[in-house]
Amino acid sequence: MCTTCGCGTDKIRLDGKALQQHESIGNLSHQRAHNTIDAHYHSHAPGMHPERMVKIERDILAKNNQYANRNRHYLCAHGIFSLNLVSSPGSGKTSLLVKTIRALQETHNQPLAVIEGDQQTDHDAARIRATNVPTIQINTGKGCHLDAHMIAQAIQQLELQNDSLLFIENVGNLVCPASFDLGEAHKVVILSVTEGEDKPLKYPDMFRAADLMLLNKCDLLPHLTFDADLAIKYAQRINPALQVIKISATGGEGMPQWLDWITAGCRKTFITKHLPSR
């Protein structure tokens, strides 16, 4: 806890080590804040300066977007196809990711890497590491999403290979990750059939920001009253261009389409990288 004001200093951790905080997007630089205010009290008498207006005109997320653009440029230049997986907690993201990695390992020889985001613990990273894929765990502490600066540091530490595939599993949350561009090629939103059909209408930002929706746990449909067509209709009402794949990590339904979608993205990234620059 900060000894000056008592506010929280939950650390963001990369594989258990504290992330460099001084440039962090989502965290207060407490000491700097205190220094600024202390300097004010010590060096000026109150009321010495008249009030004035200062034009700012800056997007609240401008700094994050700068880091995201830098990440995007780096990933494209190295032919790395990156996917940001987003969903509510419990949608089966990690299980689906493990199945996807195992399937890709059998059929493709492309190098893979994973950035795993959770508020606490490295349980999910341990599950991914069991597939022998290089994985880095980001613990966001009090943060409810990954931001582009965290990803920039994780990319450096992972030492990604050229022409590879990077999965970013975001913190389970359908609200905040929608606003934070990480520099990924696509956001992939996972909705499971054990949730409500109207989730796309309740959390429209995420479904608007995504390019692909995976409707997961479809093997359970016969046992539920979930209306898959209605869920897809709602999602495409928010985002008419949203592609949808009905999938089951457990049963394997839809996995071939999902793998084809990934492969097509990798190929496109590879071609874009090797296009002669104009």
Binding site: I25, G26, N27, L28, S29, A33, I56, R58, I60, L61, A62, K63, N64, G143, C144, H145, V175, C176, S179, F180
Partner: peptide, 14 residues
């Protein structure tokens, strides 16, 4: 929601 917490932190940084 915590969404506004992140936004407010960014406002302070600006």
């Amino acid at each position: 929601t915590l969404h506004e917490l992140s936004l407010t932190e960014n406002v302070l940084q600006i």
